[in-house]
């Protein structure tokens, strides 16, 4: 049964990847790189390596990372509406990246991708800590979301304040980043992203066993021998590393961490996180590839930033979940 689900997910992933890879650009034909004439070949090759491959890899990486973060947060907080963006972790990254970018231009320092990632992860970690501390006191699902919302509002106020003080180039750089795009990563940055991503995902997989106990709630997990404080730190580190990485390189991408795990749980009918983590990872990648394809299809008519698309799809899902799962709220 589970084997079939994996085969289906991996198969779909391959199909979507091929469609996104070969999707015609402008008036070109499908898979124009392989079927182009000799003098056109160099241009097409550039198109493939500079734009297509980094973008698709980032789609897979960001979808996987955000969906897995969402799953970890949902199980840990016992809250089906949790996710890195809705709880304000992304806002935390947002704030610190804004500070870093504008501070960097103020002191005229060129920021490396490492320092941006670090500040984004730190921001996610700080805001995650706030959420976890609040969650220890408040058990209500909706209150927690309100606090995430407040954190987001606070951050947008602070960033607008920063923008009024900053110079034109850093404002431009920040605004472009804040749109959320998969196209800002180049081939040189990819290895760094891939390594951090791999560390985060492996760490998330190692948390599968304690997560299984957390399905029964925090107290029962403690009774089964899970050390709650240690697990809390581990989870927070993994989630903020992955969220920070994605937010640093792709900007804030909303709702992926919320939608994907919920859909997976709906169909998988299992609470075993060894399976759930893998299925969520595959489905997250699938979801982002689908978003990329939708953006491609709509490209002749409107230019849709990826963040806008995920929000358009995600907000209704939150509404449905709120209406359906009243029992949890």
């Amino acid at each position: 049964m589970k084997g079939r689900v994996y085969v289906l997910l991996i198969g779909l992933l391959l199909v979507f990847f091929l469609i996104a890879l070969g999707f015609p650009h402008g008036n070109d034909s499908w898979f124009a790189y392989w079927f182009s004439s000799a003098n056109d070949h160099i241009v097409q090759y550039k198109l493939l390596t500079v734009f297509r491959i980094p973008e698709l890899l980032m789609a897979i990486i960001s979808g996987t990372a955000l969906a897995v973060c969402g799953l970890l947060l949902q199980t840990f907080l016992n809250n089906p509406l949790a996710g890195p963006s809705i709880l304000g972790l992304t806002s935390g990254s947002n704030l610190l990246v804004a500070c870093a970018l504008m501070g960097g231009s103020f002191f005229s320092i060129e920021l490396s991708s490492f320092s941006i990632t670090f500040s984004a992860a730190l921001g996610a970690f700080i805001f995650g800590l706030i959420i976890v501390l609040v969650a220890m006191r408040i058990k209500s699902t909706v209150s927690l979301l309100l606090i995430g919302l407040m954190l987001g509002t606070f951050v947008s106020a602070v960033t607008s304040l920063l923008i009024t003080q900053a110079d034109a180039t850093s404002v431009k750089r920040f605004s472009l980043w804040a749109f959320g795009t998969l196209k800002q990563v180049n081939m040189e940055q990819l290895p760094f992203v891939l390594i951090v991503f791999a560390i985060g995902i492996v760490a998330a997989f190692l948390l599968a066993k304690p997560l299984n106990a957390f399905v029964l709630g925090e107290q029962n997990a403690a009774l089964l021998g899970v050390s709650i404080p240690r697990f809390r730190w581990q989870l927070l580190l993994v989630v903020s590393l992955l969220t920070g990485l994605i937010t640093a390189f792709c900007g804030p991408i909303a709702f992926v961490g919320l939608i994907v795990p919920n859909c997976v749980k709906l169909f998988a009918k299992t609470a075993n996180h060894k399976h759930l983590v893998v299925m969520t990872a595959l489905s997250g990648a699938l979801f982002m590839l689908l978003c990329v394809i939708i953006v491609r299809i709509l490209e002749p008519y409107i230019v849709l930033p990826i963040n806008t698309l995920t929000s358009l799809l995600g907000a209704p899902v939150v509404l449905v979940l709120l209406l359906k799962k009243v029992r949890y709220v």
Partner: peptide
């Protein structure tokens, strides 16, 4: 207090009883 979890099957629930005995991956 356990009211059940929608996606948690009874078998998986019972298997959690072996939690203290299983290895790193459960």
């Amino acid at each position: 207090k356990f009211q059940g979890q929608h996606f948690l099957t009874t078998k998986e629930y019972l298997a959690l009883g072996r939690f203290p005995y299983t290895g790193y991956f459960g």
